[in-house]
Design a protein around this nucleic acid. Structure first.
Lengths: 189, 189
DNA sequence: TATTTTGACTAACACTTGTTAGTTAGGTTT
DNA sequence: AAACCTAACTAACAAGTGTTAGTCAAAATA
């Protein structure tokens, strides 16, 4: 179906603009102009500006949730699971830097889907926290403040969308191992 | 001068709203309503919506710049300088969580001051990078990818505004040492 | 007490916003 | 060839936007 394709073009174009100026500052006319059409024409493919935001954010949030469940259920060590989480973030972010900006900055403009999004987010963080906690119990991870560790690692992973686009010829595996290394072992010699 | 006080009230109220919804989604009527007055009355104290954003962001950016110069010029070890940078971020952020949201998310809506802001930001990052680099040269810091380390630490520090408000009875020194510890030594036992 | 200043108000402006209605050219299906 | 569908268009809307002009009561100053 060609309509889906056109709709996805709109979403992609919108995501790029949302990253630059934020959801609220981007008008339907901005999106249309970027596609070389008029604003009213967008409504042949999408039902509202809201829907565009929803499509961008929810699909990403669900992808994170799904992959996290996978990681959680595996039999790897906690440190190994952390490596996998880092790789997950780098992988999704490198494929969708624009969308990740909306996920991070414009989620509060979701309306009907806001609560659903918040559920996914809280659930994701809770799974992340559990992994760190069992790492502490296993003696794999320092018995430092788990909340501080969670905040620190997650902040870094959530900010990848700002940083990744500036890196030419991205090697996901290489970056993954470098970043995991810094997050897990720190910087002090 | 009372005018300054009232102006500062406006800026404080606006910053809070900007954090919740972003600069573009907040109207002058929103700010006025939050203060119990009418939108037009705001213009007795400020000249434009833009000015509010400028006041919030530039004052913070200049505070960071100034303190960074201080840290840079000190004779401390690089690791000690990193501790000071962590403390700097926690200190400023805890005193101004709302403004830090604008600094992070709404800087692109600066107009005349955009270039100045970008200069300050690049300068700050450059100083941060130098500290890490001399740490590597000194053998204080692992010879890992400096850009990855810089990105990781700075992302965490820049995200503090999201996390700090949820912590009741914040102890700046304690949080500072916990966070430095995680950033510098990692989490792996 | 008289005068000025402060800081609110109402009313209005020109412009921008998301969105709808109705139309139409070109391509596809019957 | 006739009917239909796709995806664009123009025109318009009601609501909301930042901002200005002009007014006025109370407070501060002379």
């Amino acid at each position: 179906m060609k309509e889906v394709t056109r709709k996805e073009e709109i979403i992609k174009t919108a995501a790029k603009l949302f990253k630059e100026k934020g959801y609220s500052a981007v008008t339907m006319r901005d999106i249309a102009t970027a596609m070389g059409i008029k604003a009213a024409s967008l409504y042949n493919h999408i039902s509202s500006k809201q829907e565009i935001l929803k499509e961008i954010i929810i699909s990403l949030a669900e992808e994170f949730t799904q992959e996290m469940e996978q990681i959680k259920r595996s039999n790897n060590s906690c440190i190994e699971k952390l490596h996998q989480i880092v790789e997950l973030h780098i992988s999704i972010t490198s494929r969708n830097t624009y969308g990740m900006a909306s996920l991070n900055n414009d989620w509060m403009h979701l309306e009907e889907q806001l609560n659903y999004y918040l559920e996914l987010r809280i659930n994701y963080e809770e799974n992340f926290r559990s992994i760190l906690k069992s790492g502490v119990n296993n003696n794999e991870i320092f018995d430092k403040n788990v909340e501080v560790m969670l905040f620190s690692i997650l902040s870094t992973l959530r900010s990848l969308y700002i940083w990744i686009p500036s890196k030419e010829d991205l090697n996901v595996n290489k970056l993954s191992s470098q970043l995991s290394n810094v997050l897990i072992h720190g910087i002090n010699k």
